[in-house]
Simulated scan of single mutants.
Amino acid sequence: MVMTMPSNAAVPDPLGDTGAVEKELLRFLELRTGKAWSADMDVFGSGGLSSLFAMELVVHLERSYGIAVRGADLQMDNFRTARRMAELVGRLRRPAVGGSHA
C-alpha cells in the first residue's frame, strides 16, 4: 500500500521543535533568494530584500504554521532572522496564558 502525504507534510510542527522551523525557513529563504542563509543572518540588513518580501514572509508563516501575525507581532525585528521567525512561530502557536482548557 502506498501512502501519499499532503504537500505541506514537510512543514515541521513548531510546537515541538523550533530548530526544525528554522531549517524550513532557511530552505524557504534559499529557494526564494537563490542564496544560502544562516539562522542568525539578517535577512534585510544584508541588502536586496524589500518590504514586499517581508509581507511574503508573513503570508508564508501564517499559511505554513497556522498562525495569525497581527498588531505588535508585525515588527520587522520578528522577521529579521530565521531564528527570530521560528521563535515568533513558537510563541504564536503556544496557548495563551489563562486560556481555556480542552
Rank of each mutant, 00 (worst) to 15 (best):
L31V: 14
D77P: 05
T18I: 13
A54K: 07
R27A: 15
S64D: 01
R80C: 09
K23C: 04
L57N: 04
L25P: 12
V59R: 10
G47P: 06
A102L: 13
F44H: 12
A20Q: 12
A10M: 05
L26Y: 14
S38T: 15
F53S: 09
R32M: 15
S46P: 02
H101Q: 05
R27D: 12
E56Y: 01
G66Y: 05
R84K: 11
L29S: 10
G16S: 09
F53R: 10
A72G: 07
R80A: 14
V2L: 13
R83L: 05
L49R: 06
S64I: 00
D17A: 08
G16Q: 06
K23A: 15
V2Y: 14
M3T: 12
L52P: 01
A72E: 14
V58K: 02
L25Y: 10
G90I: 08
A86D: 06
S64Q: 10
G71R: 04
L74F: 07
V89W: 02
E22W: 03
V59Y: 00
G45A: 15
P95H: 02
R80T: 11
L29D: 11
S64W: 00
R27E: 12
Y65M: 01
R94I: 00
S50W: 01
L88N: 05
L61A: 01
D73F: 04
